[in-house]
Design a protein around this nucleic acid. Sequence first.
DNA 1: CAATCAATCTTGACAGTGTCAAAATATCGT
DNA 2: ACGATATTTTGACACTGTCAAGATTGATTG
Lengths: 206, 206
Amino acid sequence: MKQTDAHNTRHYHHGDLYPTLLHAATDIISEGGSESLSMRKLADRVGVSRTAPYHHFKDKNALLCAIAEQGFKNVERLLEEVRVREKTESLSVIFTEYFHHYIKLAYQNREQYDLMFGREIWRHGSPTESLQTISRQHFKSWLNWIERLSEQDVIRTDDSPLRTAQVCWATLHGLCRLLNDGIYTEQSQLDEIANAAVEMMLKKPH
Amino acid sequence: MKQTDAHNTRHYHHGDLYPTLLHAATDIISEGGSESLSMRKLADRVGVSRTAPYHHFKDKNALLCAIAEQGFKNVERLLEEVRVREKTESLSVIFTEYFHHYIKLAYQNREQYDLMFGREIWRHGSPTESLQTISRQHFKSWLNWIERLSEQDVIRTDDSPLRTAQVCWATLHGLCRLLNDGIYTEQSQLDEIANAAVEMMLKKPH
DNA sequence: CAATCAATCTTGACAGTGTCAAAATATCGT
DNA sequence: ACGATATTTTGACACTGTCAAGATTGATTG
């Protein structure tokens, strides 16, 4: 399933190093985080020499950006699913479930998630041009959805949609880190906490 | 002012290395983050040999924990201030202002803040015993305050105080990361966003 | 089909990292 | 004054990212 379309990225000496590296790197990171990923070990595991990856990724930073991009594609897919269900189901239910899905996705790929939003890339590294675009794009999608939600009076919104989107996202993001880093809570409380957060935002007849 | 009480920690060859190291390390980190802090450069800057710090901090990890601890003492002080003002001023005003103060503090010491709650220590490193206690202690203080706030009907709370505390803190924390990492927003919007977040939590006659 | 060229990969090298073991030094209590 | 103990240093090891230069391969063109 991965080898079948092996020639849309051209195959080189090794086969197709680029996707192989990306995949292996994602694996390594999911186990021990980005600091456990060494360019040399990566090359080793894939079976090439230490500096071979540098012909496909300018930097370690560039490699990390590529991994983060994949993550953004995943969460974007989550929002697309929302848009589909939106036509037939209750908005508040979808909203609630999106929260749960998002948090679960973040938890199952926590290292990748940290890469997407963490300081390593955004503050100390330098985010790739393409990472910047996909990240902005995703926020736009989110903003759009929040706008639809407030138009339909589903969520509390005493402010501009932009502010609401920022605050809601901050809450969601904060929850993810809370759970991902295991601070102040455990994963068993996940569902309850997510529900409590949603309740705080929903404009329901309480 | 630092040398005056130089003998509560005994003075050694160098003078008092422990606080000197701690201070210098905090400085270095505040500029370039924890990954820019090298034990060797630190030792160099302070004027001792590479491995001297290892007699005061078991690890680089232990050093980072010590820095994080200082951060917790700072935020704890913020909550103490709240307890004082509580007797004379409006709770909702204090709550709002606490949000702004906390965010500002986090922003002004962002690297330290990341250390306090980030994966580096909590997930990949191993938090010191004393760091764990002070961190738990701080959440207890926060929880206490949230309890008082919901008893006085200041904030929305459809759930147990614990859940409310977790969600509110997640929101606050999420905002900090949002601003610290410069994702999806800029620092100029800080005040507005913080206000929007508070509004979402307050149970005011809207 | 052969020769050139560019893409891909490897080897060697350098400066930097955390940290351990053992040796050296200074300070303190007696 | 002396010996014990706390403090610091030197040496060493196995890592790390990444650059420059050379080697190899696959594709392209004459």
